[in-house]
Design a protein around this nucleic acid. Sequence first.
DNA 1: CAGATTTGACCCCG
DNA 2: CGGGGTCAAATCTG
Length: 183
Amino acid sequence: MSHHLVEYFTLIRSKALTWEKDSSILIEDGYEWRKYGQKKIINAKYLRSYYRCSYKSDEECEAMKHVQRIQEDPPLYRTIYYGHHSCKISLSNSEITLLEPNNTSSMFLSFNDNLQIKEQYPAFSSPLSVPTKQEPIDAINPYHNQLTSSDYPFSCDYKLEFDNFRHATMLSSTKSVPFHDGF
DNA sequence: CAGATTTGACCCCG
DNA sequence: CGGGGTCAAATCTG
C-alpha cells in the first residue's frame, strides 16, 4: 500500500545545509536520532523537540533535526534538518530516499511514493523517527484512525508563498491548510 | 548496565 | 532581558 504523502521541502538557507519538511503523517526518515532537548516555543502550541544523529559520538555525524508539531487538525509536523549525515549508518532501508536537497535551488517538491512507512508503525507510533522508543503520543492517538491514506488522497493543488527571507515555500496540501501558530 | 529520554538549568545572541 | 538552543543529571527502559 502506497501512502501518497504530500510533502514539501524548502531550502531555508542555501549556504547552510538546512532544509525543512512538513508532513502530515509521521514518517521514517531513515536515520536514528537521539533527542537532546525539548522546548516550549512562544506563540506555538506545541513543544519543539531537538534531535541529533544517534551516531554523533561514534562518527562525528553532525546532522540534527528539529521537529515541531505545527497544526492539530489534521496533524502536521515540521521537521527542520541541519547538516547532513556523515555517518553511513541508516536504517538500511534502501527504499528510503533521503530527504536531503542536493543543490541550491530554492525549493523542490517531492511527492513521495517511495518513502516507506514502517509497517510496524501503522499510522502513528512515534511522532518522530526514533522507532526504538515509544513516544508520548497520547495527544495524537485520537488521530490514528483518521490518517489512513484514503483521508489523504493524492492531490496536487500547490500554493507558493514568498516571505521576506527570500525563501520560497511551496506548500502542497490536500486540504489547503492554512498555516498559523507563529509560522 | 548501557543507552535513550526527560527536564530544568545554563547560555548565547539579537 | 528573553527566546530558543544545548547540556547534563536524573530517570527510564529493556
